[in-house]
């Protein structure tokens, strides 16, 4: 944590360097291993029929989608922890997870293909509801979190009631744990905007730095706290709702990736935000690659927690020992 600016920028550069490597590796790995040379030649218009189908039609959209989802969740999680001044800040606060669940369940009841659209719409509707209630109750970070918990419990009770009426629980179960198993090019185009919005968030790093201080302090240093907080929350909701629409409720990344990066580069969002987005992307891509590498697909949410928790525990203890 007491590292210099050079170390912090080196970490960001290292992650930038690691991104194409992890994408190429992910394209090679799968039930059928494809050698590096074949991946490269296929990407540039060569390769045989089989490698073209596997690399270009199946793996590339999924690999890119998983990376973007992690990138976006890392961004939204970092922003949520700043805006709620809470280490348990998560992109799914504000009722986004419960709203998306409701939309998804309704989708599974009516038509499977409507799941992404309904998950997105309900995530936005419920987060607006949570935000409005939170603002009516004073608009402090804690009030917003409590409003999210209260509305979340209400919506979840409806969700669980509806789930009882579903004939087949496998689909909704996989959705709850998060999964990219059905991702093709159309889903990639749906998630693509969240990549651009996330990159744009880098320009808000000053706001985030001020928002994580006490409100009164941030105001005295020149920030219009209420306006900044509202705008940041709108972006968190948008980014997260898009990810949830495509990948379901992928846990862990938004909550823990920012903490892991904070242990390396500290809390200044100038370094923390780029680190969290890149690390989130690489981390979720790695998890999804593991999830699909075996003979049976495992929901990626299980892998993220399984891979991430030991790393997080190690860093947590090490940072304490180092003092």
């Amino acid at each position: 944590m007491g590292s210099s600016r050079t170390v912090k920028w080196s970490f960001v550069l290292f992650l930038i360097f690691l991104t194409p490597i992890s994408i190429f590796s992910a394209l090679m790995i799968g039930p059928a291993d494809i050698p590096f040379k074949t991946v490269i030649s296929t990407l540039f218009g060569g390769g045989d029929e089989i490698s073209r189908v596997i690399v270009l039609d199946l793996r590339l959209p999924r690999v890119l989608t998983a990376f973007i989802a992690g990138f976006a969740l890392g961004t939204a999680g970092t922003m949520a922890q700043a805006v709620f001044k809470n280490p348990l800040g998560d992109p799914y606060l504000l009722g986004i997870s419960s709203g998306a669940s409701l939309g998804a369940v309704i989708g599974f009841m009516i038509n499977f293909h409507l799941v992404p659209l309904l998950a997105f719409i309900f995530a936005i509707i419920v987060s607006i509801l949570v935000y409005s209630i939170g603002m009516a109750a004073g608009g402090k970070p804690t009030t917003l979190i409590l409003s999210g918990i209260a509305v979340g419990m209400l919506i979840n009770s409806i969700v669980w009631y509806l789930i009882l009426s579903l004939p087949n629980l496998h689909g909704i179960y996989a959705w709850f744990l998060g999964s990219f198993s059905t991702v093709m090019w159309p889903q990639f185009y749906i998630i693509l905007p969240s990549l651009f919005i996330s990159i744009g968030m880098i320009f808000l790093y000053r706001w985030l730095n001020l928002l994580m201080l006490r409100d009164e302090e941030a105001m005295s240093l020149g920030l219009n706290v209420n306006v900044a907080r509202t705008i940041v929350i709108i972006f968190i909701a948008l980014i997260t709702a898009v990810v949830v629409a495509v990948g379901g409720l992928i846990g862990f990344v938004g909550l823990v990736v920012p903490h892991i990066c904070r242990l390396v580069v500290g809390a200044n969002h100038r370094y923390l935000l780029p680190s969290s987005m890149l690390f989130g992307g690489i981390f979720l891509l790695a998890a999804d690659t593991v999830a699909r590498a075996g003979s049976t697909e495992i929901p990626v949410g299980i892998i993220t927690a399984l891979m991430g928790s030991p790393l997080f525990i190690y860093l947590l203890v090490r940072s304490h020992v180092k003092g």
């Binding site: 730095n209 001020l210 201080l213 240093l221 020149g222 500290g266 809390a267 200044n268």
Partner: peptide, 13 residues
């Protein structure tokens, strides 16, 4: 978790 420099830079925005 901010350094002295971070803390002052945030105050100088």
């Amino acid at each position: 978790p901010l350094s002295v420099r971070d803390f002052l830079e945030i105050g100088a925005y």
